[in-house]
């Protein structure tokens, strides 16, 4: 493993995108950054720019108004990249499965590597999901 691959797994940068969730998972992702969970101590940093990011954290189900934005963000991220879906509705559509404006799970739009179920997913589960994603980054997929 060369030093770039090693550093990538040691300090992954996240991009968070809200695709239409209820907000519950989004505030839990924010809670991961704050003193009690503090994922920054593992070198995990939340980024606003897709070109800097290694891990795409998506919440909520894919819907008609913004699936293109999601695709766009995914395509802009450099390889290797992993996608982590947070929350039951992002995994399958969940409680919103019969809403008219919904396409379904995120995997209908982009390939997904890790599913984190829970409504809303707990911060521990989110961190666990990100660590699983790191394994994938380490093995270069």
């Amino acid at each position: 493993m060369n030093w770039i691959a090693r550093s990538r797994a040691k300090s992954p940068w996240l991009l968070h995108y809200d695709c239409g969730s209820c907000n519950g998972c989004d505030i839990e992702i924010l809670a991961c950054l704050t003193p009690l969970y503090d994922i920054e101590r593992f070198g995990i940093v939340n980024m606003g720019n897709p070109k800097h990011a290694d891990i795409l954290l998506v919440t909520g189900p894919a819907n008609h108004p913004n699936y293109r934005v999601l695709k766009n963000l995914y395509e802009q991220m450099p390889e290797p990249k992993v996608v982590v879906v947070v929350g039951s509705c992002g995994c399958t559509g969940g409680v919103f499965h019969n809403c008219p404006n919904i396409l379904g799970g995120i995997d209908k739009v982009i390939p997904v590597d890790v599913y984190v179920p829970g409504c809303a997913a707990k911060p521990e589960a989110i961190i666990d999901g990100v660590v699983l994603a790191l394994e994938k980054l380490k093995n270069g997929k």
Binding site: G20, P65, V69, C99, N101
Partner: peptide, 11 residues
């Protein structure tokens, strides 16, 4: 607005 509209009232 309308980026995360789901249509809960119909569901």
């Amino acid at each position: 607005i309308g980026y995360i509209s789901r249509g809960i009232e119909k569901a």
